[in-house]
Design a protein around this nucleic acid. Structure first.
Length: 398
DNA sequence: GGGCCTTTGAAGCAC
DNA sequence: GTGCTTCAAAGGCCC
């Protein structure tokens, strides 16, 4: 039986491929395998080898996978079996080519706004339910791949919640199809973020979120893993993200590259869907009302005592820093700086180029120099200054 | 109800 | 070109 007959005998509807004659090992382009991304410039996992995918398409020997139910799980099993890229496969040109690993991050099929696989319609039949599958038939012995697949199938299911996952048809989604799919699904598939409360700006109609960057996709992909590893012990999201940030930094360049490419697809599809959208559309209209943590100057100034004495010496902090208010030192600084500038002006007018304190290079030093003009130590001076100003502040309040 | 926390990356803006 | 700011995700916590 030649290769064509072998393929058609299984009747799986796989794309017909003309193989070079006479006796070359039958191969099938990797991108035609079910669930595998199209071999285009938007396929993020294709060009890891650095080779031009359009010039040197990778080919895999045709295994007996065509008589099995063809879905992503099987593809993932193949991926797991596929070693790192290695020049060991035959191509049509007879030259060695690269077999790339084809990872399928969960973000692709699950929470990505832009699903890039195709879901079979109601009328579409999934593969593998061939008419030849009857009890009478004696099955072929399982080959290595089938054994591997059998052993790891359940694991794959558990790891990826594939019970909720449609069986994929071996269609090759074009970029246009991906766009259409995205356009249809982006507003209908309830993402996690749509389940949580949205802030006021986001509740506005026509609010368009930013596309996710690589790290965000990584977070989506791995958050559940971190939670599982920690037993869902009500870990604060901040802590989870710290861990995810650490893992991201430890991730290999190749692994990160997948997410960068995914992010690029997300961005491109987002741009196609919302050509007029700009990131600044999501910026607050009134910048003064934006993130108070960053814009509130007292927040920064309130850190002055912390920076100076450290978190372990809170006893030395002024009461304003303890209350996360504007540090009294900063109040001193504003006054001192003003008088300093006035002094500089007067000094300059007198023809002197000396500064009041040659060692005062920073506002803090300036304040401390001012405060240590007496025999008291700088610390004591500062504390004295703080208490004096505190009293003055109290009087002012009264 | 809504902001904060915490991470990285992308984008926009001011200088 | 550089630096700053904001926003994407997540969900418990706090006001």
């Amino acid at each position: 039986m030649d290769s064509k007959q072998s393929l058609s005998a299984h009747g799986v509807g796989f794309p017909q491929i003309s193989y070079p004659q006479p006796q070359m090992l039958p191969t099938v382009p990797l991108y035609l395998l079910p669930g595998v991304l199209p071999m285009t410039q938007v396929n993020p996992f294709y060009n890891f080898s650095g080779m031009d995918p359009m010039m040197t398409p990778p080919f895999l020997p045709v295994p007996s996978i065509f008589n099995m139910q063809t879905n992503l799980i099987n593809v993932m099993s193949m991926q797991a079996m596929t070693p790192l890229p290695q020049p060991n496969a035959l191509s049509l040109t007879g030259l060695p080519t690269i077999i790339p690993t084809v990872p399928l991050p969960e973000a692709i099929r699950k929470k990505s706004s832009y699903q890039i696989y195709t879901i079979p319609s109601a009328g579409q039949q999934t593969l593998g339910n061939g008419k030849n599958r009857t009890a009478k038939n004696i099955k072929k012995p399982l080959n290595a791949f089938m054994l591997f697949n059998k052993e790891n199938r359940n694991t794959s299911l558990e790891e990826n919640e594939y019970d909720q996952m449609p069986i994929l048809t071996p269609m090759v989604p074009t970029l246009e199809a991906m766009k259409t799919e995205s356009a249809n699904q982006i507003d209908t598939i309830p993402s996690t973020v749509q389940r949580v409360s949205l802030n006021r700006r986001q509740k506005k109609e026509n609010y368009i979120k930013k596309p996710l960057n690589a790290f965000m996709l990584f977070i989506k992909e791995n958050r559940k893993t971190v939670l599982e590893e920690n037993g869902y012990d009500q870990i604060p999201a901040g802590e989870i993200n710290k861990e995810l940030g650490r893992r991201w930094r430890e991730t290999s360049h190749e692994e990160r590259q997948k997410y960068f490419e995914l992010a690029r697809i997300e961005k491109q599809l987002h741009k196609d869907k919302y050509p007029e959208w700009s990131a600044k559309d999501n910026y607050p209209k009134n910048p003064k009302k934006a993130n108070k943590r960053i814009h509130d100057p007292t927040q920064h100034l309130a850190e002055m005592c912390r920076a100076r004495f450290g978190i372990e010496n809170k006893a030395k902090w002024c009461k304003y820093c303890l209350q996360k208010k504007k540090c009294i030192l900063s109040r001193d600084l504003s006054e001192i700086t003003q008088s300093y500038e006035e002094e500089i002006t007067s000094e300059t007018s007198r023809g002197s180029t000396e500064t009041p304190s040659s060692s005062a290079t920073t506002p803090t030093d300036l304040a401390l120099n001012q405060a240590s003009s007496t025999p008291q130590s700088r610390e004591e001076s500062l504390q004295t200054s703080l208490s004096t100003n505190s009293e003055a502040e109290e009087e002012e309040k009264a």
